[in-house]
Design a binder for these strands. Structure first.
Lengths: 242, 242
DNA sequence: GGGGATTTGTCCGTATGTATC
DNA sequence: CGATACATACGGACAAATCCC
């Protein structure tokens, strides 16, 4: 009786439609990450759906990091990061594959192919300033290695710094996502423990040296050696289980 | 300073909690993709939350393709595909970057690096049977090219078939995701129109020929040429705008 | 520091559409 | 075809969190 009498909106608007309309709203309004979105009340009025439907659509968009919801404050355009990829690959590694080792191997192969190909491009475009930044990271690696401590964070920083000169924002985010998944999955088995930090530090030193000499082939070899070391850890873990 | 509501200890204890408990349920029960999940009523009782909270969590997991909801039937474990990555990258390309051309360039560079690196591995492991399958695809490309018709689907099939021998399930899914994003974003500008199908067919023929000869370097060159052709289309599109 | 306003989080109850058997 | 189980959607209400004055 009350409410809206079938006002021409009798289309089969499934929940996904609301999602798309919110995304379209962001596109139409040219909203940048961090920009505020209409409140749930406003959305439910402008879209002509109930608040529950709005919230479900917003929750789905939040899972994709397309919107960011702050309790008691408001809803904002998200960063569209690769967090969904991390969640998806992590879940996939823990369920789909026969064992985690296979999933980790696949991720590692993609990382290796990517970084081997990227290092050859970096070798041609790297600046002295970036070489200096890498030098500092490697130096700190060698300090930690001398103290017998592993340095996963420095490792991550090294690779992230490495590909900055490419001017490709997608590359570091992709690699960070793979790195994150690998360590989250391998971590529960203890496969990400670096048994010999000084060897790992040496691998990075080799990469940097080759980079300084602009020796593409040598840089690729050094990167390949680095990944061979990572694989060895994981493989040795699988053998231990058997 | 009073108690700082730092987010270090505050890790989404509200909404995300239900999501994680459902994910944990899947992991604990060792549920495979396609396996049925408890109904919303059962979940709301077993988790001690309302139906609304259950539905919002399920919607978020659906967006990540971790669960699959069939209207009027039930909820099932999802395929954990890379659909979220497609949605995220598409949205990112349409909003974050200055113009779509930059986003497309980044995706293209990643694809190029990946495929150039992968082709060298394929060249060593490809079997005669797979070469025959590729031959058939290329032959159909040449038919279409002779008729002046573009063949985006055949192109996709070629690259998908190419990397099957690696035994890496992640690779084709990643490439398919990038391919999907590229064509969805480029499609709205018409940049994905292939102006010369016979040239594209020739590129793939070159790749196959190099693969037959197990010539790694030549295969990489042919793959690079292929991507140079794709870039040319997109670049020419951007120049036309200016 | 306090209080009120705004906004999201959660819950309940009910009605409706949909797919399976 | 009917019966049943299930997801979808709506409206209202209150709690919790945040911000601003």
């Amino acid at each position: 009786m009350r409410g809206m009498p079938e006002s021409a909106s009798n289309k089969r608007r499934t929940g996904g439609q609301v999602q798309r309309r919110v995304m379209q709203l962001i596109l139409d309004e040219r909203l940048r990450p961090g920009a505020p979105l209409p409140t749930e009340t406003e959305l439910m009025e402008s879209l002509g759906v109930s608040r529950n439907s709005v919230r479900e659509a917003l929750k789905a968009l939040q899972a994709l990091d397309i919107v960011e919801i702050r309790h008691g404050y408001g809803t904002y355009v998200g960063q569209a990061s690769l967090t969904p990829l991390v969640d998806g690959l992590t879940f996939r590694a823990l369920t789909q594959l026969e064992d985690e080792a296979q999933a980790l191997g696949e991720i590692l192969q993609v990382r290796e192919v990517l970084e081997e190909g990227l290092i050859s491009r970096v070798a041609q475009s790297v600046t002295d300033q970036e070489l200096a930044a890498l030098e500092e990271v490697v130096a700190r690696m060698e300090e930690e290695a001398h103290a017998g401590r592993p340095f996963p964070q420095l490792d991550r920083t090294f690779h992230e710094t490495l590909y900055r000169s490419l001017g490709n924002e997608l590359v570091p985010q992709l690699l960070a996502a793979f790195w994150h998944v690998f360590h989250r999955v391998a971590g529960v088995r203890g496969w990400d423990q670096d048994p010999s930090p000084h060897v790992t530090a040496r691998r990075h030193r080799d990469i940097l040296t080759a980079l300084r000499a602009r020796d593409v082939a040598q840089a690729q070899r050094a990167m390949a050696d680095h990944f061979r070391g990572i694989e060895a850890r994981a493989w040795q873990g699988t053998l231990g289980v058997k």
